[in-house]
Amino acid sequence: MIKFIFKTGLVIVFICCATATKAQLIDNSSTFRTINHNSYFRFHYDNDFFTKSDEYYSQGITLDFVHPGIKKFPLSKLLWKPYSTTPQYGITFNLFGYTPTSIASDSILYGDRPFNANISVKTFLIQVDPVKQQQISTAFSIGIMGPNALGYQIQDNIHRWLKNPLPHGWQYQTKNDIILNYQLNYEKQLWSAGNHFLLNGTAEARAGTLNDKLSGGFNFMAGSFNKRFTPVTYKKRKAEYYFYGQSRMNLIGYDASMHGGIFNRKNPYIIPGSDITRVTFEADAGIIVNFKKLYLSYTQSFLTKEFRTGHYHRWGGISVGFAL
């Protein structure tokens, strides 16, 4: 039975990769990323260095802190909680950086992705409905994009540390603008085989100054894991080790990392709306180990082209978490 489940999981991973696409840019609310404690810290780092490239979504850093006391944080009052169960409350620091296909030019690369960095703080909650085997997560982000997000300084220092060629062209990045974004994610169990295989349907909506989009798709877990869609408990739980994958279709309305911010329109270069790919496909797959209070994961992610003259992109990511 276990061999069958793992073979099934590998087949789904292949399908997800073949349909191809973009991950959630380190969205840690999915059930396959669950840490069943009401207090934990998690660090995640994305970089296309893992796939031997340096373009488009170049890197991302996320720091999650989950604790019941975050319920009292003012922005937490904006989060929707539809069920009667106790939610997990958290706060996240996000830093994302984007570059064109070359960072060696001191000229604008027209028809390519613009340089962009954005930095934000996100408050979120995750709430489950154990009766109907479903989960809602809501989040509100506030931050800034542009030179004040320090994208150039961070990439320059990383390249110096790795002794890689230094980046050029950041002087043409999108200008400073404000980030205000609201996000709603929904997951519903479709089928399970004990604690060895789980298939969920997913939906997402984002609206605000950073991005506007609707998404729908599926995710799965295959391996050995604890039951999902259960409220946080303090009971001793067995170690987890499993594959996961997800595949989605996105309907894109606005993406400030390509369009520029909505308030400051004095950008040296952006991709016009007529060149944006309005429907994209995304997928990612990885391995997670959750042992006692330690959480580890490795992810490979894929993205179809986001604009007319673009192409597919992929990157890797690692996570380390600790229950408190």
Rank of each mutant, 00 (worst) to 15 (best):
L75Y: 03
S215G: 14
W170Y: 11
L10T: 13
D64P: 02
N195I: 11
S30F: 07
P165T: 05
Y89G: 08
K305L: 09
P74K: 03
F49S: 03
L214N: 11
M221V: 05
K3N: 03
F96G: 07
V131W: 02
K122S: 05
R113S: 15
T174F: 03
Q135T: 03
G151F: 00
S39C: 11
S39T: 11
A285N: 12
H311E: 05
S76G: 02
L294R: 13
S257M: 10
K293N: 15
N211Y: 12
I287V: 14
H159V: 04
Y242W: 08
T299E: 13
L294W: 10
M249C: 08
A18G: 04
Q59P: 00
G316I: 02
T174Q: 01
G111V: 03
D255Y: 05
A23L: 07
Y56R: 08
A193F: 15
S29Q: 15
R206D: 15
P147I: 03
T31V: 12
F73P: 01
L95E: 01
G201R: 14
M1A: 12
L109D: 12
T51C: 04
Q135H: 05
A283G: 12
G69A: 14
Q127D: 10
Y45M: 03
I287K: 05
N94T: 01
I288F: 01
S53Y: 00
A139W: 01
Y182D: 09
P167A: 04
F124V: 06
I142F: 09
T309E: 09
T31H: 10
L199M: 14
A239Q: 06
S84F: 05
F263M: 10
Q300D: 12
N176Y: 00
N219I: 09
N176E: 02
Y182C: 02
Y152D: 02
I61Q: 00
E204K: 15
R206M: 12
S30Q: 08
G223A: 05
R237D: 10
Q135L: 04
L25T: 01
K227E: 13
Q133T: 09
D156S: 12
F32S: 02
G90R: 05
A285M: 15
D54A: 00
I126T: 11
K122I: 04
S137K: 03
T101V: 04
K238L: 06
R206I: 08
F115N: 10
F220D: 05
R160L: 13
K22C: 10
F14A: 15
I144L: 04
